[in-house]
Design a binder for these strands. Sequence first.
DNA 1: GCTGTATCCCCCAATTTGGGGGATTTTTAA
DNA 2: TTAAAAATCCCCCAAATTGGGGGATACAGC
Lengths: 208, 208
Amino acid sequence: MKKKIIIIEDIAAIREGFVAALQSTGKYSVINAYDSCEAALVNLHTDEPDVVLMDIELPGMDGIEGTARIKKEFANCIVLIITVLEDSEKVFQSLCAGAGGYIVKNSNIENIDQTIDEALRGGAPMSLSIAKMVVESFRREPNSPLSERETEVLQAIASGKSYSKIAQEIFVSKETVRTHIKNIYRKLEVSSKAEALRIANKNKWVNY
Amino acid sequence: MKKKIIIIEDIAAIREGFVAALQSTGKYSVINAYDSCEAALVNLHTDEPDVVLMDIELPGMDGIEGTARIKKEFANCIVLIITVLEDSEKVFQSLCAGAGGYIVKNSNIENIDQTIDEALRGGAPMSLSIAKMVVESFRREPNSPLSERETEVLQAIASGKSYSKIAQEIFVSKETVRTHIKNIYRKLEVSSKAEALRIANKNKWVNY
DNA sequence: GCTGTATCCCCCAATTTGGGGGATTTTTAA
DNA sequence: TTAAAAATCCCCCAAATTGGGGGATACAGC
């Protein structure tokens, strides 16, 4: 039996292009094509798609939120992101939301077909440039105002450890950890763990 | 002026193969070749390499720790990991340690040359399979014992927020958050934030 | 000498945390 | 339909944590 596919893409020309391309292969059953996530979600339980081709930039609910909603209902449904701009933050977010891979917007029919095939076989189809983007987003930024020790302490804070626990692990007194924290707060101009982590994470001074 | 390269690889045949390959291009100045990180580190300040080719599996200090040590001393030095086995955990760790890219162990001369070139131009050379490995390591595992709400709460804990703060953000009372935490602890058989995060992170039930 | 880093100490008060006991409603699954 | 699970809220308690303030010493680099 043919795999059921739906398409969510707001630009009619692109949307219809995908529909035509998929139907021309004869391998898939294109159930529906929508111009918004909202529209797609109301029919989700009748469509029961195996694969969703999802644009990331959509009016109203964006493709990231849409991916999350669909995966919540149908965990086995594969959501492939149709993307043209390569914004590492959005690519990363959509991966976290459960995206199964990426289709470049101006792909030809064979390319799209191959991508869907790979996804159905359990792979994570994506271009090297997209994969690299995500990988590079985990590189530390070198211009941190925090010293090595401070970064180490903040890293430990990020994993939920208490000051005493951190002190034990890095073989210093609890007071030393507290001093480091105070200095971190002063440098980042914050006054709580959450704020410090938010700043440091945003600037990639700490890794998760 | 030629870029200065050192090689750290414990298997003599492979090490010498790389040396020969690099010298044959005439583009690089191979300063030294070592069979361990320890040996390389003592000469690091006299070698002053622009590029380090680093094996990941080494006796004594492994390539990940070695990469971290080198990047600590010379932040601008590019460390390229020579790898054959594709262990996603190690690949990810070496990226966090500051690796600039990957060279497949049985690469030919042109390939190695291209890889180094790309790294020097500021790219992150790596095979698609390696990039994918890292990307896939950020996918959530679906078999979490935690409910959606509990995952949400634990996620917030990971970002250093207090119970009260979390309560505000998800529009419930502090007591509700406390109940969720209690249930998380019961399910994971732990009794602290750090332990819960360790378990949930290891099993990819939460993303950093 | 000054600045930054790393280490340690004290005080204080508010907040947080973990553990124990409950409770209700809604949703989900058997 | 009935039971289990999830989500919500409440109380009590005591220990631990946290943030802010004030110090101190030592060691590096400029």
